[in-house]
Nucleic acid binder design. Structure first.
Length: 111
DNA sequence: TTGCTGACCGACG
DNA sequence: CCGTCGGCCAGCA
């Protein structure tokens, strides 16, 4: 076994881990970066399985296009995602990231 | 195999 | 503002 090519999920995890501290990105941006724009749902699915990974995946830095914490329900408690983000300096009000554009980070920025 | 679901997104009315 | 629909693709009964 040689070379198992990195699957879609693997790439998602890798990208998510590269999200800088205090920054956030979207499912769509990741999907687009992986060349599967439109399959943002797969990114969400990958996040769902992310807990299965040995290396922790900062899924709390991944939100939907509106900067809404849609996946907060999957963190065990709905307040975990918000708390983690606020600890990184991201203001969250009503599950909505404030100044979202200012915190937004795209994997396309990777050099 | 089919059919349904899902942490999405954009479009339509 | 709200509800609905189609598209995308992986996992599961």
């Amino acid at each position: 076994m040689p070379s198992s090519e990195p699957s879609f999920f693997e790439k998602v995890y890798e990208v998510v881990r590269k999200i800088p501290y205090g920054r956030v990105t979207t499912y769509g941006a990741i999907a687009e970066y992986l060349g599967s724009k439109g399959s943002a749902r797969m990114v969400g699915w990958a996040m769902n399985q992310s807990h299965s990974q040995q290396e922790a995946v900062p899924a709390h830095r991944v939100v939907n296009r509106k900067g809404l914490l849609t996946g907060k329900r999957h963190f065990g408690s709905p307040n975990i995602m918000k708390t983690l983000l606020e600890q990184e300096g991201v203001q969250v009000v009503e599950d909505q990231i404030q100044n979202f554009n200012d915190h937004f980070w795209s994997p396309l920025e990777l050099t």
